[in-house]
Write a protein that binds this DNA or RNA. Structure first.
Length: 680
DNA sequence: CGTCCTCGAGGTCA
DNA sequence: CTCGAGGACG
């Protein structure tokens, strides 16, 4: 055999196998028999075995990597993975359509693409030169987990894309998004196997898929019947999308490149056709072999999409239509009260367990006193529950016909169920609050909030541990966390030396989370993550902030009266000032010196001026324009007032331009805007 | 909110 | 080996 012979045969086999995979998994139209496929696959394996130097990571035989991971790496998404706005009725779809017409400044009918909304977990995939290099989960939308090794095991996912006859050709870097899921029949088969192996069955396909993708050992993932479909291509730096004008073209392109795309999408003209599609699949969804929880409606026109942009949470050009939630009927055993960190008493329903939409429900939220009264929910009632658009089960109605005669309307107690102090409900408010700031329940909740993810992020300090810390008198407030000793921790239940060390290390690193996180962690009422960030930016240092007046705080951009009053009241309290001092003594970073504080450039040609954008600019997108203005010290807002420094308008400006003219505000066209940017 | 996975604790047994 | 806590996911 000539030296180049095996290399050539290996390439040939891989090409064939990829082609057969494509026909089997993507086109759903096998070219060869299973036995023929297996024969080629084995031949490839044998050749690679004999010539290890020919093995490449994108070979079809290399789906299962050898090693077990220690943990997953973090991946920061190049563009955030947003969620979608939800709608639950046809009226809301019509409203969505109208909103688009308003924002676009043109009349419909618009072209939409409707896709089934598969119930799985979202992933982001990165291909370099046609080869899969990274796959990540959604995570919090900004950063997710690197689950590449597990995604590689999905047979329907190409490790290498096919680039012949592709127009436009594959870009060097391609980023796509899709959904990993398990079919109903796949779950059934897997569960049958698990039961014979003495393992518990998976409760539902979604959790089975999510769990499988987060296994550290990808050889186990390989045995799970995971599938994937792709539905989005990111513009990325390649500006590849300039080669496309429609989402429907993108879907066809993805399929040609070798990606599985759910075939049941449809191009719709006008919202009525969208509604027909939604109706049809609400009817027919039981016929599918996979779970869907709705329909995703997207504008087809990519340029129009870009013009509409996105809010911080969701794109404005898409909408998820959710099918009516399933309901179940069960008995209400009790109404328990939970005490939150502000003392708020929140009622929760304890239910006779009942299976609903993939899980067994035994608790449900009741929101507040008024909600219970409105629906006249009584202990002992038969109630209807459903899992709403989110996942949280709620009581939707009482089956009054089944009500027993001896039940009584629910009355919320006037005392805290934990400490017995008076719980009062100020007139005009919906919540009743425990008035005792030292209520153990409140203390626990405050500390738990302090340690939680968006706050000081102290891993290992969950509710169970906090409960023990407070009950054993080791911790009375958040500052006490920083004087905990290893021996004290190791003596607690379910804590050993190892856990104690880990926790202390986490507490140590939390000291340098910075002033914004710390301020949010303190849990001042109305001061959420955003307000805390603004305050930290303004003062740099929490000690410097202590002498701020309510008026001074209120002057901060983005902070209103309510937050300012709450913040000032907190700072005026001597106990809180002591708390800050104690935190500082413990070594917690209260922020940088005021001199170093980060500020929007006070210099710059646009300093201190506020601009409004309207219409389409030819040279930049909206967000680029915003960034350019901010870099030069200016600000961007959404609506025109007499204080606006200028209205920058492009093609097809909206009503904002009219308003600017009426108010005598300066109007700036794109050419002038460019000149402004240049004078630096 | 419920499910799944992972980890460490603490037990049993060799 | 079993248990429970904690974190991720929808």
């Amino acid at each position: 055999m000539a030296a180049g012979e095996p290399a050539r045969r290996v390439e040939e086999l891989r090409k064939l196998i990829r082609r057969y995979d494509y026909h089997y998994y993507v086109l759903d139209d096998p070219l060869v028999s299973d036995s023929e496929y297996d024969r080629l696959y084995r031949e490839l394996e044998e050749l690679e075995g004999a010539h290890p130097e020919l093995v490449t990571p994108d070979s079809p035989t290399q789906r299962v990597g050898g090693e077990v991971l220690e943990g997953f790496g973090q991946v920061t998404h190049s563009q955030p993975m947003l969620s979608l706005d939800n709608s639950y009725s046809e009226d809301e779809l019509v409203e969505f359509d109208r909103r688009i017409a308003r924002a676009a400044g043109q009349e419909g009918p618009f072209d939409y693409v409707t896709e089934l909304k598969l119930d799985g977990l979202a992933v982001n995939l990165l291909y370099e030169n046609g080869t899969l290099v990274q796959g990540a989960t959604r995570g919090d939308g900004r950063t997710g987990e690197d689950v590449t090794a597990n995604l590689r095991t999905l047979r329907s996912l190409p490790l290498r894309l096919q680039d012949e006859e592709l127009d436009p050709p594959l870009p060097a870097i391609l980023e796509v998004r899709g959904e990993v899921y398990i079919t109903r029949s796949g779950l059934e088969a897997a569960n049958a196997q698990r039961l014979t192996d003495g393992e518990p069955a998976f409760a539902n396909p979604r959790n089975a898929a999510a769990g499988s993708i987060r296994l550290l050992d990808s050889s186990i993932t390989a045995g799970r019947p995971l599938k994937i479909v792709l539905y989005q291509m990111l513009a990325g730096e390649t500006a590849l999308l300039s080669g496309f004008s429609r989402h429907s073209e993108v879907l066809s392109y993805l399929r040609k490149a070798g990606f599985p795309v759910n075939p049941l999408w449809k191009a719709c003209r006008g919202i009525d056709q969208v509604i027909d599609f939604c109706r049809e699949w609400a009817q027919r969804r039981a016929q599918l072999d996979y779970n869907i929880d709705g329909v995703v409606v997207k504008l087809d026109d990519l340029r129009l999409r870009e013009r509409l942009g996105a809010t911080s949470k969701a794109p404005r050009w898409a909408m998820a239509y959710k099918f009516a939630a399933e309901q179940a009927r069960t008995q209400l055993i009790a109404i328990d009260l939970q005490v939150g960190r502000t003392g708020a008493l929140t009622p929760t329903a304890r239910l006779e367990p009942v299976f609903l939409a993939g899980s067994t429900v035994s608790n449900a939220t009741l929101h507040n006193e008024d909600e219970i009264e409105r629906k006249d929910i009584r202990v002992g009632d038969w109630v209807w529950i459903e899992k709403g658009g989110d996942i949280i089960p709620k009581v939707v109605a009482v089956d009054t016909k089944a009500r027993k005669p001896d039940t009584e309307p629910y009355r919320m107690p006037e005392n805290c169920p934990v400490c017995g102090s008076k719980a009062v409900r100020p007139p005009g408010e919906v919540v009743r609050r425990c008035t005792n700031a030292s209520c153990p329940a409140q203390i626990k909740e405050r500390i738990w909030h302090f340690t939680s993810r968006g706050a000081m992020d102290i891993e290992g300090a969950g509710p169970a541990l906090v409960e023990q810390l407070v009950d054993n008198g080791l911790v009375h407030d958040v500052a006490d966390l920083y004087s905990l000793k290893k021996d004290q921790l190791a003596a607690l239940e379910r804590m050993g030396n190892k856990s104690a060390e880990n926790l202390l290390a986490q507490i140590e690193v939390s000291k340098s989370r910075g002033p914004a996180r710390l301020l949010f962690a303190l849990g001042v009422r109305y001061v959420g993550a955003i307000a805390a960030q603004l305050l930290a930016e303004r003062y740099g240092n929490l000690i410097a902030m202590q002498d701020a007046t309510k008026e001074e705080i209120e002057a901060i951009e983005g902070i209103g009266q309510v937050i300012a009053a709450s913040m000032a009241a907190f700072l005026a309290e001597p106990r809180n000032r002591q708390l800050l001092e104690r935190l500082e003594e413990a070594g917690v970073e209260l922020g940088c010196a005021p001199a170093e504080k980060v500020e929007i450039p006070a210099e710059g040609p646009l300093a201190g001026k506020r601009f409004v954008l309207t219409g389409i600019l030819s040279k930049f997108t909206r967000s680029e324009a915003e960034r350019l203005i901010k870099e030069r010290g200016g600000k961007v807002s959404g609506s025109v007032s007499s204080k606006t420094g200028g209205v920058i308008f492009g093609e097809q400006p909206g009503s904002k331009l009219d308003k600017a003219k009426k108010l005598g505000v300066r109007t700036i066209d794109e050419a002038e805007f460019l000149r402004m940017l240049d004078q630096k």
